[in-house]
Design a protein around this nucleic acid. Structure first.
Lengths: 260, 260
DNA sequence: TCGCTACATTCACATGCGTTAATCCTGAGT
DNA sequence: ACTCAGGATTAACGCATGTGAATGTAGCGA
């Protein structure tokens, strides 16, 4: 696949492309316009250690010591957290181009877990590599701050989502967020996008039960809001979906200088 | 008040002290041991622009352009977010020593609001001052990253709290978090601490209604878990409170090198 | 084709929490 | 002491969402 040099397809996400030679080229064309030297630095970093993981597999678990910054190159991944008695909350989703935790080695141990949703291709960046990148390019260092600020903003929105919205609104909001993020990185096809989550996973992400998610999605289908099957989501009218979800994309902070 | 040079009282929070001459001295003795030069830099930055705000007053509102990093010197403040129809979610609380949003100027506009809970004394740090600090002291810059990582971790815990815990557990968890954070900064008195929130505010922070918060707190009182009146919280048995809340303090990341 | 297995769907019933709206405190100011 | 206002408390009632468990369905390997 190729990528994202026009306004539409740029975003917070670090997006990559395969050139004709199938080598990865990284664009942290997020937030700042990076010089080609910066791009080169990132491209290098992403090639050093690449792994492929099967679906529903842990990347790192709560309590473990973080050793790498993970960058998702293909597929969906997620953060989650489990209470002592097993209840599980999904905290966020990662899609291609997302950087999991800049500077995570500063923390002694993970307070949550990372796992794949689909089959995932990711790049691991070691602490020393990471520090070198930050030192060599202040632009990238600033882009990483920006990335982190957006990450917190998304987490705040999720808190609000679960705390204030009804089941119907919550699920609609999740659809909006993922659709917009995928579109920003050029991964939508008109009014459709991939959506590899099971209803149980939607439930764990929204603080609902799987049964109620099922009921609610059927209601959304009846309302002609969406279609969801075979791991694909179709949004008939995004404005309407955003409206019923009380979705305000401001928290994604897509209004940065990287955009046209 | 004086502060926090021993292990117990150090924490993630940037704590300050009044010397005998009533001048502020800042300790970002969080996470890293700072050199006295670093301390001096921070002390300076915190003296330049100090404001006092009355209770329940906005500091900055969603949509506005951020101009300062705010550091809380005294009192409690909060983040909140409001949906288009008025529903409000409180997203986190700040206590003395907390730094609101490092590098916030990177974002074009606020995606949430900041307001006081009690009367608050805060220091504003401008963009240029802030950048200068980061450049002059890499130790501080790293401490700021650490601070940001803990901020996201707390937000994740709040998401989990609202998504998975029952009303009783949620409120207990909030009590635990604030008690532990206050204790870490030396602001508890044995088994008691200040707790200036109204039941309505507890409700907005936990995604419950004020009526149900009231019911639940009475139940906690009957269970001899806590006492709460006159804006003071008494915790009879912190271990038991943590246990019913399924509270695991790992997300506060207090196990850093700054600690003895 | 059979029979897994993982999901999605349905059903009957229970309940935790929300809603609305009085009424009751308590502390601060006069 | 008296008053007032902002909380806290109580009550009656409703509903959104949870629980537990059965049934349906589609893909996939043997």
């Amino acid at each position: 696949m190729n990528v994202a040099t026009d306004g539409t397809a740029q975003g917070r996400w670090i997006i990559f492309s395969r050139g004709p030679e199938h080598s990865l080229t990284l664009h942290l064309s997020a937030f700042v316009r990076l010089a080609s030297a910066d791009r080169e630095i990132l491209t290098q970093a992403l090639q050093r250690r690449v792994r492929i993981l099967e679906p529903r597999q842990d990347i790192i678990r709560e309590g473990e010591r973080p050793r790498f910054v993970n960058v998702i190159l293909e597929g969906w991944a997620q953060r989650y957290k489990q209470l002592a008695d097993g209840r599980r909350q999904i905290l966020s989703f990662f899609i291609a181009g997302d950087l999991c935790d800049a500077n995570i080695f500063i923390l002694k141990q993970m307070d949550h877990s990372l796992s794949t949703v689909t089959r995932v291709k990711l790049a691991e960046i070691s602490q020393s590599e990471f520090q070198e990148i930050m030192e060599r390019s202040p632009r990238i260092a600033q882009a990483l701050w920006w990335n982190e600020l957006v990450t917190v903003a998304i987490q705040r929105e999720w808190t609000t989502n679960i705390g204030q919205r009804t089941a119907y609104e919550r699920i609609a909001h999740l659809f909006c967020e993922m659709f917009v993020r995928l579109r920003t990185t050029g991964r939508t096809d008109d009014d459709e996008c991939e959506f590899p989550l099971t209803q149980s996973e939607i439930a764990e992400a929204t603080g609902l039960t799987q049964v109620h998610v099922n009921r609610t999605i059927q209601e959304m289908r009846r309302d002609q809001l969406i279609e969801l099957r075979n791991k694909r989501l179709k949004v008939f009218d995004l404005d309407r979906l955003m409206s019923v979800a009380l979705f305000n994309p401001n928290y994604l902070h897509l209004d940065h200088e990287g955009l046209a």
